[in-house]
Structures are given as structure tokens and as C-alpha cells.
């Protein structure tokens, strides 16, 4: 009866539909062919090429890449103190930026997730997303204007009579420099600014999922607001913080624009990659350097997974 009841049953599209209905796994694999072909060749292929290049070395006399597998480049990377300094400096900056971003993001995320309602909530989400998607370069450029010696920040501090404090801060070893726009402190501020939305959104998502009655329960059981915060809110927000920190950590590790536009003389991993492949023409060393953040991020992801970061992604 089934076949007779439907005149459309013989149409080829329907026949194909039925064919794939019976073989749903086949349909899935067929759908995956184009994206996997693309991804497999272009992206994964490139990553393997990168890995391969890092096991080549440059001939010091002819300055050409010798396509023979060797550990020479990694040895160069790991034994020269200057290179290790770069790795250390970049990692320190990434960790500092991650912590600062979490601290600054929390009150914003907390407010938009728990207090803002309706239109106000929508406003907050747009207000966080817009700067996140606004042109990366333009934002970096804006900070160059703000941090410049004659720029807006100096002017503001001057107007407040705090220019002495700024000068003292810039004299501090390790973070200072001739002006904010050429100091580690300035770079740190720019990094925190750039990646802040990537921290706010996952933390807000995690806090949105904390039922309000959980906090009522805590208060009901006699916890002071500060106790509720430390014992209930923060542990529940941690997966969001971990998820956000993956972005802040990874983005800081790989960035080379910010250290070259706003920054101190010390090199960062990204700058080294950029410079080695460019002016130095040493692709193997650039490749080896870019493997460092992959390894660091791998370690970081393993730690974040333990903290439950992927549940909040």
C-alpha cells in the first residue's frame, strides 16, 4: 500500500532521499568530503609542512634551506639564551594578561549575567561584542594614540596632577620605558584591552547558568555576600574563566603586531617568527619558534580541560 499511496515515490530526488535515509552514516561521510578535503590539504597539510620545516636547517654559508631532517634548528632554539629569554618573556606576558583579563572581566560579566535584564542585558552583550569585532588593527592604532607621549592618557594624568606618578612608574625596571607606548606596561594594557571581551563572554555564559536560587540558598544558610562569592559564585564561574583564559593565553602567545606597534625593545615569540621568515629568511627557525606556542597551548589546554573549561565553550 505504501508505494501505491504516494504518486511522488518514483521521483529521483525521493529515491535519493530514501537511499540516504537507510544509510545515514554514508550521508554524513559524503557531506564531510568537501570540508575534509579542503581542511586536510590546506590546513593540516600546512601544519605538517610547518612541522617538517622546523626539522630542516639553514645552511650558514649559502643562506638556503637544506631539506634534510635534522634537530639543529631546535638545538639552536633551545640552547641560545636569547631565544629562551624570548620564550620566557612571552609566556610571562601571556600569564599576566590572562590573570588581569580575568580580574577585569569578572565584574562586567557578573553584572551582565546576573543583574541586567531584558533590553539592558542585550545592550551589555552588544557593548561587549562590538569592540571585540571592531578592527583589530584600528584598536591597536588607537592605543598608540592613547599611550603616546603627547597622547590622551598623559594629558589626563597631567590634568589630574599625576604626571609624576606616571614618570615614576615608567622608571620602574622591567615594566617601564621611555613612554607608555614603548614599555611593557603599555603593551600589557593593550593586550588586556584587546582580549578582554574573549574573557567576558565565556565567564558571563558560565554565570548565566548559575541558578539564582543557588545564591539564595547560600544566603539562606547564613553566608555573608563575600562568603557566597568565594564559596559559590567563583567555583561555578571557574569553567568560564578557564574557557576565556584559553583565548587570552593563546592570543597573547601568538601576537606579533602589538609588540611591534606598542612595545619595548625585547622580542616576543610572534615577532621572532615574523622576523625569521621575513628579513632573515630562516623559515626553519621561524617554524621551530611557532611550534613553541603550540606546545605551550597544548599543555595549557590539558590543564584547562581538567578545570572543566570545555563544558563552558
Amino acid at each position: 500500500m505504501a508505494a501505491a499511496a504516494f504518486a511522488t515515490a518514483s521521483r529521483p530526488l525521493r529515491a535519493a532521499s530514501t537511499f540516504f535515509f537507510r544509510r545515514q552514516a554514508l550521508a554524513v561521510y559524503l557531506l564531510l568530503v568537501p570540508p575534509l578535503l579542503w581542511f586536510g590539504t590546506v590546513y593540516l597539510g600546512s601544519l605538517f609542512a610547518l612541522l617538517a620545516q622546523s626539522f630542516y636547517a639553514i645552511d650558514e654559508f649559502t643562506a638556503t634551506v637544506v631539506p634534510r631532517l635534522t634537530l639543529k634548528t631546535y638545538a639552536q632554539l633551545l640552547t641560545q639564551p636569547a631565544n629562551l629569554d624570548i620564550v620566557l618573556r612571552t609566556s610571562e606576558m601571556a600569564i599576566a594578561v590572562t590573570i588581569a583579563a580575568a580580574v577585569v572581566a569578572f565584574p562586567i560579566a557578573n553584572y551582565m549575567a546576573r543583574y541586567a535584564r531584558g533590553r539592558m542585558k542585550a545592550f551589555f552583550y552588544v557593548a561587549v561584542m562590538l569592540p571585540m569585532w571592531t578592527s583589530y588593527l584600528v584598536k591597536v592604532y588607537a592605543w598608540r594614540l592613547i599611550l603616546a607621549k603627547e597622547g590622551i592618557l598623559s594629558w589626563c594624568l597631567g590634568a589630574l596632577g599625576l604626571d609624576g606618578a606616571l614618570a615614576a612608574l615608567l622608571r620602574a625596571p622591567g615594566i617601564g620605558g621611555p613612554s607608555l607606548s614603548s614599555s611593557y606596561l603599555g603593551m600589557f594594557i593593550v593586550f588586556v584591552y584587546m582580549w578582554l571581551p574573549y574573557m567576558i563572554l565565556p565567564v558571563a555564559a558560565a554565570l548565566e547558568r548559575v541558578p539564582a536560587n543557588l545564591l539564595s540558598a547560600s544566603a539562606d544558610l547564613g553566608a555573608r555576600p563575600s562568603q557566597t562569592f568565594w564559596r559559590v559564585m567563583l567555583p561555578l564561574a571557574m569553567p568560564g574563566v578557564a574557557a576565556g583564559s584559553i583565548f587570552t593565553f593563546s592570543l597573547t602567545l601568538g601576537d606579533y603586531i602589538i609588540p611591534s606597534v606598542v612595545g619595548a625593545p625585547g622580542y616576543f615569540i610572534g615577532m621572532m617568527v615574523y622576523q625569521q621568515q621575513g628579513t632573515a629568511g630562516n623559515i626553519p627557525l621561524a617554524a621551530a619558534f611557532s611550534v613553541v606556542p603550540i606546545v605551550l597551548i597544548g599543555i595549557y589546554l590539558a590543564l584547562a580541560r581538567r578545570a572543566g573549561a570545555f563544558d563552558a565553550l
Binding site: 570540508p35 581542511f39 590546506v42 590546513y43 593540516l44 597539510g45 600546512s46 601544519l47 609542512a49 610547518l50 617538517a52 620545516q53 634551506v65 584559553i246 593563546s250 592570543l251 602567545l253 601568538g254 601576537d255 606579533y256 610572534g270 617568527v273 615574523y274 621568515q277 623559515i283 621561524a286 617554524a287 611557532s290 606556542p293 603550540i294 597551548i297 589546554l301
Partner: peptide
């Protein structure tokens, strides 16, 4: 795999593509 290009820093995608272009 499909989220790797945004999970890893852009510079890795960039240098990887360049390395592949040089190789090929």
C-alpha cells in the same frame, strides 16, 4: 579539528601556510 584555526594563534596558521607554499 574544525575549531583548531581559531584555537591556535593566527600566526601559526600564517607561518604554516607559508611553509607549505615554500615546500610546494
Amino acid at each position: 579539528l574544525f575549531v583548531l584555526p581559531i584555537a591556535l594563534p593566527g600566526i601559526i596558521t600564517g607561518i604554516a601556510l607559508l611553509a607549505a607554499m615554500k615546500l610546494v
